[in-house]
Simulated assay, not measured.
Amino acid sequence: MRLSDPYTIPYKGIYAVADAKNELVEIMEHSSCYGGSAWALYHYSKSPLVIKSRSVGDMMRYLVRTGNSDLQLQSSVAAAGIESVIVSNKEIEITYSGLGGGGVGATTCRAYANGVLRCRISESGGGKRASGTIVVPRRERVLIGIDNTDSKEVGATWTLAHNIAAAVDSLEHRYISHTLVQLFPVPDKTQNCVATVLEFACIEGAKKGLLEGIKEGLMEYSVSGETGMVALSDFDAASLMEYSRLCRSRMITKELTLKTAKENGVKICIGGKGIIGALAALPWFSRNNESVTL
């Protein structure tokens, strides 16, 4: 056996989306070793800048305030953390610190991740305190709701949505999450009445190509004449939750959907009746355990 680097496990990718004012950032770390990332999630959650943290499959997600903090690291109790998050121009600079093995995670494991533009790292491992700074592109979140691509004879919206998303995935528009959203079982449903929301993290200028690619895939492979596709570029979709709850509790009209989409800056990409459920799916992105129940 020969290991090229026995003490480094690079993350598969690290991506960061910022809000419009650059006051909030969500850092998304695609893990190569869930055990190590779960340890980091526990310790990083105690960092002063971290508002909320969670794991979605093998993706560790940290909602943070931008700025600097004074990390008071303590072995075994608070052994690693996020020290600073700075947004400037089209980039986001993130500094991590950690003790011992936590320092290895803060430096080499993150510095060599896909999506990192450049880095500065200190020596790590053993009993040292180590720090690492990575620079990643500033990204915006793009949410795409899809519904009604199948028929009573063939297809399933959630599988088609995922396969198209995986096909268009690139470093410019990274495919982050796929979420099934249970809707009110209307009489003309295919079977289970479930919509899908896709989440992407896009660098500036990548949104147009992303939407064109997904629309092209749906137009080619959908077997329904009522396919709906909608898109929203925003840090979250909280303003659509009231509409979504209505759609998940009773039948609503397409007219209400069109009005709500216009009021909330949502783009109608494919305008079949499926836009009703597609719009309702948006605020549930990455909330997979909650979205599958009414």
Rank of each mutant, 00 (worst) to 15 (best):
E93V: 10
C269V: 15
L218R: 02
K267I: 11
N114T: 10
P10A: 04
D150H: 07
Q72H: 14
G213Y: 07
L117A: 08
N114S: 14
C202E: 08
R141S: 12
T108M: 06
L160H: 10
V223W: 10
T133M: 03
V142W: 04
K21A: 15
G274M: 03
D5T: 04
I9C: 05
I275Y: 02
I92C: 13
K207L: 07
G225D: 15
T149A: 08
K262W: 07
E204Y: 12
E220A: 13
T8L: 09
N289K: 14
R65P: 06
G272S: 11
S291D: 02
S131Q: 10
A237S: 13
P48W: 01
V266E: 01
G213K: 09
E199D: 11
K90R: 04
T293G: 14
S84G: 09
K152M: 14
W39D: 14
S291R: 03
S88A: 14
S224C: 11
L211M: 01
D5K: 04
Y96V: 00
R65Q: 14
P283K: 05
D188M: 04
W284T: 02
A111H: 01
F285I: 11
A281E: 13
L198S: 08
S224N: 12
T157K: 06
D236Y: 06
A38T: 13
L240M: 05
E216Y: 10
K12T: 12
F235Q: 07
F285P: 07
K52Y: 09
G100I: 01
E212I: 03
R245F: 10
T107C: 01
A201D: 06
P187Y: 12
V230Y: 01
G205P: 07
G67Q: 04
